[in-house]
Design a protein around this nucleic acid. Sequence first.
DNA 1: AATTGTCTGCAACCTTGTTGCAAAGATAGC
DNA 2: GCTATCTTTGCAACAAGGTTGCAGACAATT
Lengths: 143, 143
Amino acid sequence: MKEIASLLVKKNLAKTPCRVEILRTLISSDTALSEQELRQKMTHDYDRTTVYRTLRNFLSLGIIHSVALEGNDVRYAITRNSECNSEDVHVHFHCNKCTGVYCLEADIFTKPVLPDRFSAANFDLIINGVCEKCHISGNPHDS
Amino acid sequence: MKEIASLLVKKNLAKTPCRVEILRTLISSDTALSEQELRQKMTHDYDRTTVYRTLRNFLSLGIIHSVALEGNDVRYAITRNSECNSEDVHVHFHCNKCTGVYCLEADIFTKPVLPDRFSAANFDLIINGVCEKCHISGNPHDS
DNA sequence: AATTGTCTGCAACCTTGTTGCAAAGATAGC
DNA sequence: GCTATCTTTGCAACAAGGTTGCAGACAATT
């Protein structure tokens, strides 16, 4: 919890309940969460607008990042140095069974050679498949 | 134009004006189009619902495919065998200047090694950067 | 040309993104 | 610890998609 407080101080943000709870929820989740999932996991029911603005704020500060999936499905996750913080490569795994989205290490990705005159600033890779938790049983981890 | 007619016949779809025009527009565009861009490029103003249903229809038949970008931004493009039809790899280039989305050859992509117990069904790579048309001048191709 | 089944347009509703404004809360100085 | 100030929150409201049902229009078939 000190982690959260110092993060907010570092980013010059007031330590408000909504911010603390959003951060706590995202930090303690092993998957990226949709806004809906996030709100459901939070104990207090904050207004939609408040959560929206807080997420937007966190996004622009790089505290969290978002993953756009097919079908207007956006997930949010804490940006951890060890996983998703590579300057220009983001790798996410989307499980077709439990629908969870996991941040994977960026260094498993090899940058492709682009056609002439195309220059890349960053890469976003989404891998669809079956995650480790759903691998054996075939049963989803979250139901 | 025969191309379009035979495509529709092959997929068991009636040759209706809306379908023909959507296909014609997508085929003649070198970039993936948003629904809005698509509607603007079409000569007849079809109802939003009609376009929506037609696109959904084409998507499920694999005639077109969609690319989900950040910020609820979805683009649609014809699925060409030479470009985007690889069974499990889709590579798209999103230009930060002209905002265009181009389908790139899937074979420039190298599949990464996944963590234990993760298994992949398909890969979606989105590369952000500057496209060939915006490369030199710095001026966007479409304005 | 008539029939049948599909497609289109309209109305309507839901979700998500977004803004303005006023009330409530956090931070800083007294 | 209390007040002033600036920030954050909640509410209302609207825009843009996504989505469905239904009835009239249209395409394909006989």
